[in-house]
């Protein structure tokens, strides 16, 4: 094993330590290897003389654990008391944060809902127009015949209105089908984008 591999493995094993401390240990072992090489050892020999990175890391980490003082019972009680006394402060902050998070979540959900409504607004409008024109066409065309006897001009006008409404019904229906197809693909793409947004965030957190 050469010097660089040794140092890289040691660095990986000491990842749990603070950066400054880790760098101190690494520079210490680097110097040790350099000293051994100056004394006439080859790189591999110098590394072998120091020991395996696993053993060294284990030793460093065990020393670290022993230097960490255990928290005394008195200290624990004081911390608990402080937490209880300070609860009106941190509790209210915690509640406010929870309320804020809930509000943000609801806002986000509403925004998503609004986006879907905006997407489907146009085909729904053309669909409603188509349906209302169908009703008008049926009533106007059939209803025009009894009106002929009362006022012929009005009957013809109503019949014309019925045919006109039938035309609008066909065109609006065609437009609804066309827009519906297009907006289905838009909705699928939007949903995929939303899903991708959340999965990407999850991956980043992981």
């Amino acid at each position: 094993m050469n010097k660089l591999t040794f140092l890289a493995r040691l660095e990986k094993l000491l990842k749990g330590l603070p950066k400054k401390e880790r760098e101190t240990h690494l520079s210490y072992y680097q110097e040790m290897i350099d000293d051994a090489m100056e004394d006439g050892c080859t790189e591999e020999e110098a590394v072998r003389r120091i020991g395996s990175p696993g053993e060294i890391a284990e030793q460093i980490l065990s020393e670290q654990e022993t230097t960490m003082k255990p928290v005394s019972a008195v200290k624990k009680i004081i911390i608990t008391l402080l937490l209880i006394i300070g609860s009106p402060l941190w509790g209210s902050i915690l509640l406010a944060a929870a309320a804020l998070a809930t509000g943000l979540l609801i806002t986000a959900l509403m925004l998503v809902l609004c986006a879907y409504i905006v997407i489907w607004c146009l085909p729904v409008a053309t669909g409603a127009l188509s349906l209302s024109c169908l009703m008008l066409a049926v009533v106007s065309t059939i209803g025009a015949f009894p009106i002929f006897s009362g006022n012929a001009a009005l009957g013809v006008l109503q019949f014309g209105t019925g045919i006109l409404s039938a035309g609008i019904f066909i065109l609006a229906g065609w437009l609804t089908l066309f827009l519906g197809k297009y907006f289905i693909s838009v909705t699928v793409r939007f949903s995929r984008w939303l899903k991708h947004l959340f999965t990407r965030k999850k991956e980043a957190i992981a």
Binding site: V156, F159, G160, I163, L164, A166, G167
Partner: peptide, 10 residues
């Protein structure tokens, strides 16, 4: 066609 016919009848 329906639209045009309807307009004409009107």
């Amino acid at each position: 066609t329906f639209l045009a016919a309807g307009l004409l009848i009107c």
